[in-house]
Design a protein around this nucleic acid. Structure first.
Lengths: 347, 347
DNA sequence: TTGAAAGCGGTACCAT
DNA sequence: ATGGTACCGCTTTCAA
């Protein structure tokens, strides 16, 4: 059913019908109501492609997905979807090309110039991210999930990674830990850097020297969690605590600790960042896991909001949101067990 | 840059340029090459919305995401994205409405009648799935990831869930297990039913009575894996083996087994279905986990292929693909330990 | 308050 | 092999 046909059935002009459906004020209330009812009854829906062509709006937000299907992705997307449910806006997931390569910028150029999206959301930015410069140059509105340090103005939503890890590390220090190992995300990404900084600042505050042998970077996988944790535990002296980047990482860390005949929460403390997944929860781990927590789903929902604001004209420079992170202590963190623990006297 | 303007710069008509870019045969090779080069140089890209309007094709495939961000989602999407990378086809993730409610059918109607997608992919179908009837009625091409038992003709790609679980269960029986617990997916979904059938057939073949107290259904979460496994282990006699529906489930199962002071692979055997995730692997579990394995990423890629075939005119009734599943034995499965094991003499 | 008509940016039929 | 032009289905001036 097309507009013209639908209008004819109502005995109105396409113009009036279009206006009625779009909520223009000059249509009489009576007419508007009748049109709305009949549209439902007869199943009339505007052809989105015609609307998009004539209005110049795509009615879609682009999300570029990393190559290796990250487990965090669906949680974030669910949040976005939830928020956009009421709006008539689509989410476009882009077949992504190689990491940071030429292909990737081509992808963004294509997205921008072909008019299939009104805005783009970028994930896992780097401090000096090319994509940000590129999208800015192309004039495509975008939101950064995470942050960058580039001069280029950009809207962003991020969690306080530095603060979260600083508090987590400080807490471990308070418990008497001195050799604290850190299993962080991929090197070079802003959030990994922020977490590194949080870790180092906490040590610094207490005058504990930073030991590069106690820090590792890589994807958030069970396997890397295990391998890194094992290699740390092979050191002498052993670390007595771990700060892990994700729930998946922690699975590997727990296994590694057990494989050394040690007990998490007694011999070794573990704390990790939790993005809150319905299928894997910190409370249910044994022992239950102390975490820095921030809902990724909520971030997705809020991201959708912010993009909408961006599209309705709010300047990118005014869209900066930093979320604080909860620190939730459970059973996986405890005092240093051995007599060689040096109680802290400075704080 | 618009077609008209671009054509003028080349000293050609819009018609010729359009044809050259779309690879029509009647354009001279020389012209085609020049047009292609200049398009890159001047950055000309057809406005997709204009193209969509005039051709009637949306250039997008719709995927409806479940409400609760399932962890499998990103893996499947990655596969699709990988496959569609070369094509100029978008993936539209729909803000999903309630499970099977009116909202959901409205969502599909909207997708179908508004022309934003050329085809839709349906997940987690039920034996008599309303969505299938609906999409068929609406004339929207669709692929079912999984299967249904409806009369309505539909294209589908599925893995052999029944065969996989039958083999897994048979293997456990071969090892001497008689009380085998099954933690399956959500009740009512086709794949859960198929797995139930595989489980029951394996028992039947060996004359082992089916005990409804040994089967449970629910979401694939760590927590449910734990709770179900514990409640099974509280029974007397205890089950000596578990068939689990997913990698997340198995995390809970392992924990539950340990909480009873039992050892997986010695006191209790465990086997699970593995969709193959980069972040959580069967090989790395302790003990390593025996699995029925099938790549969800590959399924995503193949799904994209099949949808493309569907769109190029292949009848839905000719698109039926059933993938067999690998059975991979690792350390989590072993013979029944106790003397009360009754060796099987029938097979 | 309503309607007529001019596009939005392409594609593809019909000529040449 | 190339060009002129009538659409695709809708929004939005402009006029009534």
């Amino acid at each position: 059913m097309k507009l013209k046909e639908f209008a004819k059935q109502l005995g109105l002009s396409p113009t009036t019908v279009s206006r009625a459906l779009s909520g223009y004020p000059e249509v009489s209330e009576k007419t508007r109501k009748r049109v709305a009812e009949e549209a439902v009854r007869l199943g009339y829906r505007p052809n989105v492609n015609a609307v998009r062509l004539v209005t110049g709006r795509a009615g879609a937000i682009g999300v570029v997905m990393g190559r290796n299907g990250e487990f965090q992705f669906s949680e974030y997307m669910s949040g976005m979807a939830e928020r956009l449910d009421s709006q008539d806006i689509d989410i476009l997931v882009s077949p992504i090309a190689e990491q940071g390569g030429k292909d990737e910028s081509q992808l963004y150029s294509r997205l921008a110039t072909s008019g299939r999206v009104d805005a783009v959301i970028i994930h896992s930015p780097m401090p000096n991210d090319e994509r940000i410069a590129l999208l800015h140059r192309l004039g495509m509105p975008f939101l950064v999930h995470g942050r960058s340090e580039t001069e280029v103005p950009h809207a962003w939503l991020d969690i306080d990674n530095e603060g979260a890890i600083r508090r987590a590390t400080s807490h471990l220090i308070d418990l008497g830990h001195r050799r604290i190992a850190m299993i962080n995300g991929r090197a070079g990404l802003t959030f990994s850097l922020h977490r590194d900084q949080g870790y180092r600042k906490a040590l610094e505050q207490r005058g504990i020297p930073f030991d590069p042998r106690l820090i590792a970077h890589g994807h958030f996988t069970d396997e890397l969690g295990f391998r890194f944790a094992r290699s740390f535990l092979e050191q002498s002296p052993q670390p007595t605590a771990f700060v892990a980047g994700s729930m998946m990482t922690v699975l590997g860390v727990y296994r590694a600790v057990r494989s050394f005949g040690l007990v998490v929460g007694r011999d070794v403390s573990v704390i990790a960042h939790d993005d809150v997944f319905p299928y894997l929860t910190a409370d249910n781990m044994v022992p239950s896991l102390s975490t820095t927590r921030s809902s990724l789903r909520a971030a997705g929902a809020r991201s959708a909001d912010l993009v909408l604001q961006l599209l309705s004209g709010k300047p990118a420079t005014e869209i900066h949101e930093l979320w604080s992170v909860e620190l939730i202590l459970r059973e996986s963190t405890g005092p240093v067990p051995h007599s060689d623990a040096i109680p802290d006297k400075t704080g």
